[in-house]
Design a protein around this nucleic acid. Structure first.
Lengths: 335, 335
DNA sequence: TTGAAAGCGCTAACAA
DNA sequence: TTGTTAGCGCTTTCAA
């Protein structure tokens, strides 16, 4: 492996000069730069990044903690993060927790041991306290999820508002028995969407019916079984608001199997607008999140923090969009 | 930041001993270990990984080069890789190429500069030659994709066989005008699936009809537009074999819009068996790939190579499974 | 504008 | 079983 001293020797300069050419070219005379570049080329020199990192004490790497990689919502956000990371010369290290909380400690060590310069969390669950503590000492940004009184920049959408919007839409369509199948309660976005749902019911004087509320998990399977359960009750709903699109699709599948037509017999709304929602049969009414944008914004914030720019601990709320398609029956009802 | 020498001082031993306790505990007396551990705890010492990496010249990090993160096939494989990586103490660095070939050089530098100990490629396109060269010098494994005469361990399924199987199934269902919408030709898996398709046609004496073959891209949009095109022709197909499930769903969407019923008027088969295929309407007949398994296997191989274990340059072919659901009409035809 | 030289914190060869 | 010690290759301060 050729090293810097080899280059220096060939170019007839000191290693300091070679280093300068690489990191601060303006401080070196043009002609000297020339010599150095030629030597580098001639020797096919590659700086030893490990040595550089050790010396400068920064990794130019960030960690993304994600509960599940195979969730399109998260992979889309990560793609956004990766985009900006690349532009800014950062690498992205994957931290798939597989929903196992114990992993958190592991990832926190990455920060403590300087394996990464900062982290973006796409989810914080019961490991809240661990992260809260660590957020005081290391650059951290939250995306998608958010945590009450965690003093950390956060990029989200207004989940309460969106939940309200969905429910209100169903109410205006004439529904009174509107069920909500929420994602796991330990994720704040679920709670927020529930809040929006409840708020809309209250606003339109519809009593909350616990038979029409199911706390599930953001998966196709849970959507499926929730519908089986809901529709087996005597007081079954005429509309269901699912916490995400996967659940909604699983739910529609179950309904179809039971001979319940969507949207004629049952209106359905999802959340996220993943790429399969528009082509699902029926096309899903849902809330579209600017996921890629969220990822980009989160990474931009993180870079600022890592660069030491003072940043008010703020919550950045991006715009979501209510997308009306067939599954809620709006087009049939003609509203 | 407390460093090793602080621990050594407190424990009344040398740094060498502290280092041994951390990396090779058996070579140190129990009682000494005890002392050291206490000092570590008392000082909340975290080893400086950057220094360690520099010194040992290994990163315990691998690179995964992926064309697109938001593709469920890849994210599933990555999840498998990540699983084994974690167990083996490796970190996974993300290399999303966004299908841009120029990125390859960038990632190759990661290897050259020792930012990673090895790499798993989920795709090799026109950048083949670059990779072929690099594969001689660094630990590399291919997963999902494969490259002719690239001397590198590869984990795949038998795409030719699967393509044959699908086509044969459609033929046995009575179809003669079977179209194939393939993924981009610069990916070998696409070519293999096409080969399987052609082989089956030949085997059953059905002439290849170029009007029934479209080279597309693995996306919903291309599936959609391919069907619009295919079904507008005079000699339109009675069955379509799509190169992946996303295309198949896009295709069914297009068919539905055109008043063509699937599977009654048009049989459809996809490839991959992503999680939405089973609940799509109609449920998709498809080939199920052991994606998670592929990822795990690939990482296992890479670890072996990085550990210097001699490994024959082999192609590991995992079993895929033909999953018959409604979209191909088999259940209607009663076969 | 350049060079000399001092480390960064750790590991491992060698000695004891 | 433990300690001494010599770097790993780079960056950066200080001096010229």
């Amino acid at each position: 492996m050729t090293k810097m001293s080899d280059v220096a020797k060939l170019a007839n300069v000191s290693t300091a000069t070679v280093s300068r050419v690489l990191r601060n070219p303006k401080t070196v005379k043009k002609s000297t730069q020339q010599k150095v570049f030629e030597a580098i080329k001639q020797l096919d020199y590659q700086p030893n990044i490990l040595a550089r990192r050790f010396r400068t004490n920064q990794t130019k790497t960030i960690l993304v903690v994600v509960p599940s990689l195979t969730n399109l919502v998260f992979s889309e956000i990560i793609a956004g993060i990766d985009r900006v990371a690349m532009e800014q010369g950062y690498q992205v290290l994957l931290g798939d927790t597989n929903k196992q909380l114990e992993k958190a400690q592991n990832f926190i060590n990455h920060l403590k041991q300087k394996q990464v310069d900062g982290a973006i969390l796409l989810t914080v669950r019961l490991d809240q306290d661990l992260w809260k503590e660590i957020a005081n000492h290391y650059p951290i940004v939250l995306a998608s999820d958010f945590v009450e009184d965690m003093k950390v920049p956060t990029v989200t959408i207004d989940n309460v508002k969106s939940g309200f919007e969905v429910t209100e839409h169903l109410i205006k369509l004439g529904h009174r028995k509107i069920a909500h199948v929420s994602g796991s309660a330990d994720v704040s976005v679920s709670q927020e969407r529930v809040k929006g749902y409840c708020k809309a019911l209250r606003h339109y004087d519809i009593p909350f019916d616990s038979d029409l509320f199911i706390e599930a998990d953001y998966s196709i399977e849970w959507g499926y079984s929730s519908v089986k359960k809901l529709m087996a009750q005597k007081s079954n709903p005429t509309a269901i608001f699912f916490g995400n699109d996967e659940m909604a699709m699983g739910g529609i599948k179950a309904a179809t199997e039971m001979g319940i037509r969507v949207p004629e017999d049952l209106a359905v709304v999802g959340f996220d607008d993943i790429k399969f929602s528009a082509i699902y049969n029926p096309p899903l009414t849902t809330i579209s999140q600017p996921l890629h944008e969220m990822g980009k914004k989160a990474m931009e914030l993180l870079v600022k923090i890592m660069d030491g720019e003072p940043l008010e601990t703020e919550k950045y709320v991006l715009e979501s969009e209510f997308v009306v398609r067939d599954s809620c029956g709006a087009k049939i009802t003609g509203k």
